[in-house]
């Protein structure tokens, strides 16, 4: 796009900006390896005398992070699976089948795409408690899937629309049903869209706070962000525990991102634009 001789001046200018914006991570990781006494010295970038890996073991055990991570993983797996099961066929139907009422469904999903989750929380809680789903994994999965359905459907729909109608017509002449066309013709070529949907629903589920706050009340069912907030509130005066617990909460997703950054970036950008 522009001359390459600007590469190094720009990179040199960006480096300090990067240091400032990523300083919170560096500070947290360093502080998480200090003793309480060292933290109390209030010297933000002093090196700890001994690396206190014990802080991590303590936080992990006291905060029950093993359970939190397990709950978060189950939550994520449930949401991703159910999102695919619901959004892929619905996106196909909206893109490739003409049926009465399609327009109304379309507007109904736009409504859900627009309205913030906080705006429906009272009846949502009543529905969940009426179905005895408060404090359960099933409850949080259903609420999160429903919240993500409009986005997922529009994402899949806009991908399926770009597939030529001739593929559908040809398969129909061969006697295929819509279900067969979806599974045999469309699914094999849908991996970019499905990847985007998986990445976006996984990330938003892993990081969700509002719905778990409403639905998951007892500590043994809570997910990572909610558990960390509770932990940080309970042990607010033990900085070493709060710091190491916080690092435990963000490190896995950051490592995962660095390992898969190309797919991750593509999925997020494509998804945000098309959804």
């Amino acid at each position: 796009m522009t001359a390459r001789n600007r590469e190094w001046p720009v990179a040199l200018a960006l480096a300090p900006v990067m240091l400032v914006l990523l300083a919170p991570f560096a500070w947290l990781i360093m502080s998480s390896l200090k003793t309480e006494a060292e933290i109390a010295q209030a010297a933000p970038f002093s090196w700890p005398a001994n690396l206190m890996w014990r802080n991590y073991a303590d936080a992990w055990q006291i905060g029950g992070f093993g359970d939190l991570v397990g709950n978060s993983l189950l939550n994520l797996a449930g949401v991703v699976a159910l999102t695919l099961i619901t959004c892929v066929p619905a996106g196909y139907a909206l893109a490739k089948i003409r049926f009465p009422g399609r327009e109304w469904l379309f507007y109904a999903f736009i409504l859900g795409l627009t309205i913030p989750i906080q705006a429906i929380v009272i009846p949502l809680y009543e529905v969940l408690s009426g179905l005895r789903l408060v404090n359960t994994l099933t409850g949080i999965v259903l609420a999160q899937v429903s919240n993500g359905i409009p986005f997922g459907i529009f994402l899949m729909r806009s991908f399926f629309i770009s597939v030529p109608d001739e593929l559908v017509e040809a398969a129909k002449i061969d006697g295929a049903t819509h279900f067969q066309i979806l599974t045999k013709v469309f699914l094999p070529i849908s991996s970019p869209a499905i990847q985007a949907l998986v990445i976006i629903s996984a990330l938003s589920t892993w990081n969700d706070f509002f719905l778990p706050l409403i639905v998951l009340i007892s500590p043994d069912v809570q997910t990572l962000p909610l558990g960390l907030v509770r932990f940080a509130g309970t042990y607010s005066s033990e900085y070493r525990l709060v710091f190491s617990g916080t690092v435990i909460s963000f490190l896995p997703i950051i490592l995962l991102y660095i390992l898969t950054q190309r797919r991750f970036t593509e999925g997020l950008t494509q998804g945000a634009i098309k959804g």
């Binding site: 619905a90 859900g112 529905v127 919240n147 459907i153 819509h178």
Partner: peptide, 17 residues
């Protein structure tokens, strides 16, 4: 094809709206 999405969405989003 719409039923799985619609059922969940109707109960947990449209009805609450």
């Amino acid at each position: 094809l719409m039923v799985p999405a619609l059922a969940i969405y109707a109960v947990f989003t449209l009805f609450p709206v």
